[in-house]
Design a protein around this nucleic acid. Structure first.
Lengths: 211, 211
DNA sequence: GTCTATATTTCGATAGAC
DNA sequence: GTCTATCGAAATATAGAC
């Protein structure tokens, strides 16, 4: 199985909550669920296979390795965040661009909670993906517009931006992430209410940009 | 390496202190570093032992199991957060109590970054600790004042508190956590500057409590 | 307290039948 | 596409010498 063609298509067409059309997507849905609940390293292929109803070996018909399953899930998020790349590249730390960026991220995050949780809770596993030459070499990653996290990091590390403003940019992201991660404490609250409350918080955090 | 543990004696100079606890604390320091950098599940006892300079089997003289090492690190955080328990028990969602609580947490978090990171990045490993009967039975946990996280959860889940205020409480915690987790983007910024910037953000988030 | 083994388990991954 | 069976590696944990 070649990653180059087969993995790119579902990444752009499938939402995290989408129905499990193909076996491949069913595997990803189950894996996403288990990776979030138990962590990537603590989840064995045997468990994934058991939940799917077939044997562990069958997974290898659809995915080259366990890491390639994780990679496919990363590509799902990649597809979701593609839309904010223009904002990032234009220097989102200027003016009110950052607030508009976070506004869009709030919607994306609320509609794809589990995918966000996956990335927040398994940082190291994704970092290992990037480190692993055997994964990179297949050429699915490493496109110029793939490194959304790198663009964020560059913006937040820019020393020409005042420290207090960088803290506020980071804090706005953390506020969204924190509410998302502890979303079970807010169970029953409609997404729309959560979104507007979050937007109000973000606006207060970013309201007064220092000179 | 940077240590900020209040309860335990730092392991760097261990001439006068008890020799038995010295190695034990050194193990914990190394384990904390590796668990944060690589994750709990991805860190083997062999790696910990190698960094300490002795063999893997020697660890079992000091700790009953790998999970007991993690438990000891949890108890370090437990000691740090004991001071805020009165605020939590008195109902921190009222008035400006929450802001005072977060103010204190900011200092604790900044002085013990790695310990905070450990808990944020290895949530599932700690959850497994609580699930595992073999660990609980030893009676180290399960005291009534041990469940700081439970008290937080209870406060944030309280339906009698307006949703917008609960979001703001959560967001203030997320802001602190977010800045801490991405602290490498703010490398070089003194802790004092970080703390005051964070306090300003938290104040803006919590400034106007809804009726 | 630390060592050298080794027991035991689990995992990711492969081979080959169907 | 899925199966059974198994390999090899690595992990936790134990046993016993020093």
């Amino acid at each position: 199985m070649e990653l180059g063609d087969s993995a790119a298509v579902p990444a752009t067409t499938t939402a995290a909550t989408g129905p499990a059309s193909s076996t491949r997507e069913r595997i990803l849905d189950i894996a996403l669920d288990l990776f979030v609940r138990k962590g990537y390293a603590e989840t064995s292929l045997r468990e994934i296979a058991a939940e799917l109803g077939f044997s562990k070996a069958a997974l290898y018909y659809h995915f080259e390795s366990k890491q390639h399953i994780l990679l496919a899930l990363h590509l799902r998020l990649h597809g979701l965040t593609e839309g904010v790349l223009p904002l990032l590249e234009d220097g989102a730390s200027a003016g009110d661009t950052w607030e508009r960026l976070v506004d869009r991220l709030i919607d994306i995050a609320l509609q794809n909670r589990r995918l966000i949780e996956l990335h927040v809770r398994n940082r190291e596993a994704f970092a290992a993906l990037n480190r692993d030459a055997a994964i990179e070499k297949h050429g699915v990653l490493q496109h110029k517009n793939d490194d959304v996290e790198g663009l964020f990091r560059a913006l937040l590390s820019d020393p020409s931006v005042p420290t207090e403003w960088r803290v506020r940019m980071l804090a706005s992201l953390g506020a969204v992430g924190g509410v998302l991660l502890a979303a079970d404490a807010l169970a029953g609250v409609p997404d729309a209410e959560l979104a507007s409350a979050l937007r109000a918080v973000v606006h207060d955090v970013l309201g007064n940009r220092p000179a």
